[in-house]
Design a protein around this nucleic acid. Structure first.
Length: 584
RNA sequence: AGUACUGUAGCACAAUGGUUAGUGUAUCCGACUGUCUCUCGGAAAGUUACGGGUUCGAAUCCCGUCAGUACUGCCA
């Protein structure tokens, strides 16, 4: 037996108990004729004491211990002469009678403390040391709690956890696939799933009725702070359900998590039409923790001589609370900010709503006080606010103003990590126009069913067709999304046709699904949550990386194991693969 | 693929184009019986990412490369 107790559990009630502890040396405090050694494991830290009365040689040995050495000690729990509230075991210490060094440790490259001196890249290279730190350790435990609550909730509701394969088939729609060459089938490749989508639908055809899985998914696309090439989904599907049933179950799950994990009670989630989200927030995942809703200003701005507005498809503004006090310089910096290529606005018109009820704008030449008062009314601006107005093509200007809205909320501290504002965004369009190719592609995925009665519109006005698709949004992040699926072969065939598949292509790619639909597919639908993102939002963090034990860096590399890596020529030969690397 | 920022001691950061490139922390040595971010004394530690250029003189300015981070494109 390596230990009788953990390093986090001893209290005053254990005084005089003989214990055995094992853990890592956190710190050695050498005070001459007395040393304290703080020992750490997953559960906490405990102070050990060595002095002149310790058995022969122990005091000297304790002084030689270096940080992160793995030791085992036997000793007696004693009351401290000076207690501390800084640690949970601060009332006691261990008078050590036996010390065993289980494994010496090299000096770690950064300090293993809550506030480490290590930067991101060195922490990732030595992630196993980083995980010893409380913030990372707690994040991983937090993730465990969330995923256990998910399992508990869904299992209680009758969902069955079923595994689906990781080696599947590449499909043209959607993100790039990670590919895996098949040795036994020369020249052929598996793909890693971007989601278990078709399999979960086939489980419904198989009669499993309610399925869930906490499952790794893979997308070969560029990374972000909240996006990894391999990520985890809470994947769910139900048969014999309508949209309402699904929203209810998963609103319940989200409420359960907020309650159990964060201790927060949330009222019924509001629902917002996709069109309204775009109109009021410029975004299909609005953060509704704060106001600053869009005010469309076309009618009241397009009757004067200001050409920029007159020629714009959309003139739209937001009222930034309290920002009328911005100096000319600060506003110029804001204008520079919206003109950055990442945002891409050509300029910004502003109106200061002065405390005395007057207005000062950058377009006073064209508009009088009466005009500006109407703008203030439409954007909901109050005295002291700054109205920021952008104009241009509707789709572009909405996303630009949305970026500005989020930036201003961030600067004004309105995005509070401990405040939770979930909402459903519903009635997404079925199709989305690709501006470059002029082709439509599925906004959600090609198995999403159109709203009843709208299928005829596919021929006349495909962009206007709405889908039985919904997203769950939390604090400006899409944490889940799903749809009612198509469950008959005819509708699915029509969809594939409109997505530009020939009949042969559809059969080749998705024949198995079309076939299955001919053998009694029940009406079904479902959704998937992004677990990494959900966990990080519940945990109040911007980045998902510390909720993943071994994340990839910005370039998709694992810097600890140094992957991806070259493989030797024999492996390539086995796979019948030749490399043809272009010098760039 | 693009834009921006960054790259200096183990780690985190400083240094107006001008002396021997500093500070904190970690490390090593010494002192200390109540520390818990101990304290005090000392020591060691640098290819200023790499390559080129401008200059009397470059960590600093310019060009290129590489790497990291954030964002945009991308992510059905």
């Amino acid at each position: 037996m390596y230990r009788s107790h953990t390093c986090g559990e001893l209290r005053a009630s254990h005084i005089n108990t003989e214990v055995t502890l094992a853990g890592w040396v956190q710190r050695v405090k050498d005070r001459g004729n007395l040393t304290w050694v703080v020992i750490r494991d997953r559960y906490g830290i405990t102070q050990l004491m060595f002095n002149e009365e310790s058995p022969e040689g122990l005091l000297e040995a304790s002084k030689k211990l270096s940080r992160e050495t793995v030791i085992q000690i036997k000793g007696k729990v004693i009351e401290r002469e000076s207690k501390t509230k800084n640690m949970e075991t601060g009332d006691i210490e261990i008078l050590v009678s036996e010390l065993t060094v289980l494994n010496e440790a090299k000096l770690p490259p950064f300090t293993i403390e809550d506030e480490t001196d290590g930067g991101e890249d060195i922490r990732m290279k030595y992630r196993y040391l980083d995980i010893r730190r409380n913030p990372v350790k707690e994040s991983l435990i937090f993730r465990h709690k969330v995923s256990m609550e998910v399992r508990k909730y869904l299992s209680d509701k009758g969902f069955i956890d079923i595994e689906t394969p990781y080696l599947i088939k590449s499909t043209p729609e959607g993100a790039r696939d990670f590919l895996v060459p098949s040795r036994m089938n020369a020249g052929q490749f598996y793909a890693l799933p971007q989601s278990p989508q078709t399999f979960k639908q086939l489980l419904m055809v198989g009669g499993m009725d309610k399925y869930f899985q906490i499952v790794k998914c893979f997308r070969d696309e560029d990374l972000r702070a909240d996006r990894q090439p391999e990520f985890t989904q809470i994947d769910c599907e139900m048969a014999f359900v309508e949209q309402e049933d699904i929203l209810e179950i998963f609103e319940g799950m989200t409420r359960h998590l907020l309650k159990e994990i964060n201790g927060v009670d949330v009222a019924k989630f509001p629902r917002m039409l996709f069109d309204d989200a775009m109109r009021l927030y410029g975004n299909d995942k609005p953060d509704i923790r704060f106001g600053m809703e869009f005010g469309e200003l076309n009618e009241i701005t397009q009757r004067k001589d200001f050409k920029v507005f007159n020629e714009a498809e959309l003139v739209v503004g937001i009222a930034v609370p309290g920002a009328a006090s911005y100096t000319r310089k600060e506003i110029d910096k804001l204008i520079d900010w919206v003109r950055r290529p990442q945002v891409g606005a050509l300029g910004m018109v502003y109106v200061k709503c002065n405390e005395d009820g007057t207005f000062k704008s950058s377009v006073d030449k064209f508009y009088d006080q009466e005009d500006l008062a109407k703008w203030a009314e439409t954007t909901g601006a109050k005295a002291g606010d700054l109205i920021c107005i952008l104009s241009g093509r509707t789709t572009k200007v909405r996303s630009q103003l949305s970026a500005l809205r989020m930036e201003m909320a961030e600067r004004l501290g309105l995005r509070k990590a401990d405040e939770f504002a979930p909402l459903w965004v519903i009635d997404f369009p079925l199709l989305e126009l690709d501006e470059e190719t002029g082709h439509y592609h599925a906004m959600h995925h090609p198995f999403t069913s159109p709203k009843p009665g709208q299928i005829e519109l596919l021929d006349t006005d495909p962009g206007s067709v709405k889908a039985n698709a919904y997203d769950l949004v939390l604090n400006g992040n899409e944490i889940g999304g799903g749809s009612i699926r198509i469950h008959d072969k005819e509708t699915q065939a029509i969809m594939f046709k409109h997505l530009g598949f020939t009949e042969e292509e559809a059969k080749e790619q998705f024949g198995f699904l079309m076939d299955a639909f001919e053998y009694g597919a029940p009406p079904h639908g479902g959704l998937a949550f992004g677990l990494d993102r959900l966990v990080s939002i519940l945990g109040g963090q911007e980045t998902i990386r510390d909720f993943i034990a071994f994340p990839k860096n910005n370039s998709g590399r694992d810097v600890m194991i140094d992957a991806p890596a070259n493989i030797d020529s024999q492996q390539l030969k086995d796979l019948s693969i030749q490399l043809d690397i272009k010098e760039s």
